[in-house]
């Protein structure tokens, strides 16, 4: 464990809590992409199957369980409890355009052709693009609530911090996972436009709106 990974994990946890709190407090999931959230639940489910086969640490097990539970909790709030507030008209990104190619790629490019390893690879690839429906939704409506933009900033920062963690681990532990690093860089790049808008608008007290 190093400081980058720890702060990355904390940012990730913070993002998930922020989203749950936003939905709970406002009793609404308006502006949140149910498709991105479904894919995140799929990401955690396929990645953390090793909860059953491997024990790494109490920290690792606890965080994995929190991530899985919270992703399904978010889906419950969005698709059952506050279903009436779900903005499906604006959530029109086609998930199959991401899930199908990512599934194909995880069969072709992986560390080991075994079920758990392929599912782990699938989750890494899917995570890198799972935010696209959310970003697409914001580009369609032209704006995001401030709390939603805080959520996205925390969520994007997490993988950026992981990149620093991988640089650290490469130099100090000789650890290098090409699949995670490439996917993590792709994931972070997808946020760059959002990061720019967030820093130039939300940090100056304005709402996140897209230039016309």
């Amino acid at each position: 464990m190093n400081v980058f990974r720890l702060t990355g994990d904390i940012a990730h946890l913070l993002a998930i809590i922020l989203l749950l709190m936003k939905i709970w407090k406002t009793r609404s999931c308006a502006g949140v992409s149910g498709k991105s959230q479904m894919m995140f639940a799929l990401v955690f489910t396929t990645r953390y199957l090793d909860l059953i086969t491997n024990f790494i640490s109490l920290y690792n097990t606890t965080m994995k369980m929190i991530f899985i539970a919270s992703s399904y909790g978010t889906l419950y709030l969005m698709f059952l409890k506050f279903r009436a507030t779900y903005d499906s008209n604006h959530d029109t990104f086609r998930m199959e355009f991401l899930v199908v190619p990512v599934a194909g790629l995880s069969f072709l490019v992986n560390h080991d052709f075994s079920p758990l390893e392929i599912l782990w690879t699938f989750s890494i690839y899917l995570e890198s693009v799972a935010i696209l429906p959310q970003l697409f939704m914001i580009s369609k409506t032209g704006e995001a609530e401030t709390i939603t933009s805080h959520y996205l900033f925390a969520l994007g920062s997490y993988r950026a911090l992981y990149i620093l963690n991988w640089v650290y681990r490469f130099y100090f532990e000789g650890f290098f996972d090409l699949i995670a690093v490439v996917a993590g860089c792709v994931q972070t790049v997808l946020y760059c436009d959002f990061f720019y808008l967030y820093i130039t608008k939300v940090w100056k007290g304005k709402k996140l709106t897209l230039p016309a």
């Binding site: 990645r47 090793d50 640490s57 991530f67 560390h111 996972d177 995670a180």
Partner: peptide, 10 residues
Amino acid sequence: LIGSRKKDEL
């Protein structure tokens, strides 16, 4: 260490 080993990251 390349890739496939016990995954300690989240």
